[in-house]
Each structure stands twice: as structure tokens, then as C-alpha cells.
């Protein structure tokens, strides 16, 4: 009679490494950064690059529309059941940092519904430089900025630039046109981040998303090895 709910396994309480059925859950990588820096394009490129070797899914945190999810669907980077969107109530950073419950349910539901996954990419809604992912939600995070957003961003720092596991400086092909100083950005990033890696990326170049994909692959290898 009650058609609204199904009876399957119990839900997990926190971001435990294992699902309630005892299987190890997927590695979760968050992608954050300001609006327009190329998060969705990077997610799309990563999916195309990694989908043959890893079982992938994506959670988007759109600010207003389902545009990010729909872009990924349109580009057919993954089958539709592997892409899901979380609504953020006008506060994208809240949904990835302060109250991660909706995102946790989204990643759990993906694994419940499509079976064991290797990697879930959680894309934040475009936000400001202070927005970072909670460790309760993701295992590693990428902060994506771009050269056109101002070459002083690495110097200004902020939690995203300073603490993300990987900093991606995107759209390097635009640097000559917007007068951005890539060497200066690299030096500032190094000063802010010490040993943490930085990748300068142009998705239009031949290498494209290759270096970021290689980083994600290494993250997955480490995650798999720690099981």
C-alpha cells in the first residue's frame, strides 16, 4: 500500500570508508572554485579520460539551475544514471562544508542504485575563494581557478588555494590575452602551498586534462591500496 518507500539496507551514519553492506565505498574527490573557472569542463574531461578504466559517477551542486548536470548529460560524458544533482538553497558552500547531508545521501544513493563505484566526483557550485569541502564528504579536493579570474588569486590565498590537495590553474591558453603572469602565479602558489601540487591546465591543448587525470588515478591507486 505504501508505495513511497522501499526496504533495503540501512544507511550509513558518517563518511565511513565502508558501506553498510561491508563493501568499500568509492573514492570521493571534490572539485571547488569560483564561478566560471572551468570546474564542469574539467569534470567532463576527467569523465571522458577515466571512464574506460574506472567505474565513475558525478554529483553536481548547482546553484540555481540543473545546468551543470545537464551540460554533463548533454555531453554524454557518463550514462544519465551516473549523474545526479543536489540543490543547495542558494548556499553552495553550506552543502559541501557545513551541512553535507544532502551530498552524502547523493553519493550513497549512486552506489546503492548503480552498484559498486570506484570514483565519485563531487562538483561544488561556483562560489568564493573560501569554499572548501568537508573531510566528511570527500577524501581529496581539487580547487580550480583560472588565469582570467586575476593572476593575483594565488597570492591572495584563502582556504581553497592554500589547502586543496590539488590546485588547478585553468585556461592557461588565455594568459596572453588577459595579461596574466603564469610564472608569477606559479611562484605565489608555491609560496602558499609549499609541497602541495599545482597543475597549469588548458583543456584546449593536446595534453588537456591528462595531468589532472594522472593525479586522480594516483589518488585512486592509493585509496585502493589502503583497503
Amino acid at each position: 500500500m505504501h508505495l513511497d518507500h522501499s526496504h533495503d539496507e540501512s544507511t550509513a551514519v558518517s563518511a565511513d570508508a565502508h558501506r553498510p553492506d561491508g563493501h568499500r565505498r568509492a573514492l570521493r574527490i571534490g572539485l571547488g572554485g569560483p564561478v566560471g573557472s572551468g570546474k564542469t569542463a574539467t569534470v567532463a574531461a576527467l569523465c571522458k579520460e577515466l571512464r574506460e578504466e574506472l567505474s565513475l559517477a558525478v554529483v553536481t551542486n548547482d546553484i540555481y539551475t540543473r545546468e551543470d548536470a545537464e551540460f554533463l548529460l548533454r555531453e554524454a560524458v557518463l550514462p544519465p544514471e551516473r549523474i545526479t544533482a543536489v540543490e543547495t538553497g542558494a548556499c553552495p558552500h553550506t552543502a559541501i562544508r557545513d551541512d553535507i547531508s544532502a551530498n552524502l545521501e547523493a553519493v550513497e544513493d549512486l552506489e546503492d542504485e548503480i552498484g559498486p563505484l570506484d570514483l565519485i566526483l563531487v562538483e561544488s557550485g561556483g562560489d568564493n575563494l573560501t569554499a572548501t569541502f568537508s573531510k566528511g564528504l570527500v577524501d581529496a579536493q581539487i580547487f580550480v581557478i583560472d588565469v582570467a579570474g586575476g593572476d593575483d588569486i594565488p597570492r591572495k590565498g584563502g582556504p581553497g588555494v592554500t589547502t586543496a590537495d590539488l590546485l588547478v590553474v585553468n585556461k592557461t591558453d588565455l594568459a596572453p590575452y588577459v595579461g596574466s603572469d603564469l610564472e608569477g602565479m606559479a611562484a605565489d602558489a608555491k609560496a602558499q602551498r609549499a609541497e602541495l601540487p599545482v597543475i597549469f591546465q588548458s583543456l584546449r591543448s593536446d595534453v588537456g586534462v591528462g595531468p589532472v587525470a594522472a593525479w586522480a588515478r594516483a589518488q585512486y591507486a592509493a585509496w585502493a591500496a589502503s583497503a
Partner: peptide, 11 residues
């Protein structure tokens, strides 16, 4: 209001 139970995303 900051109790992390998802309320912030509902109007």
C-alpha cells in the same frame, strides 16, 4: 539553524 540536517536547502 546550523544543525546539519539539510534544512538550509528548503524554503
Amino acid at each position: 539553524g546550523r544543525f546539519p540536517a539539510g534544512g538550509h536547502a528548503h524554503s
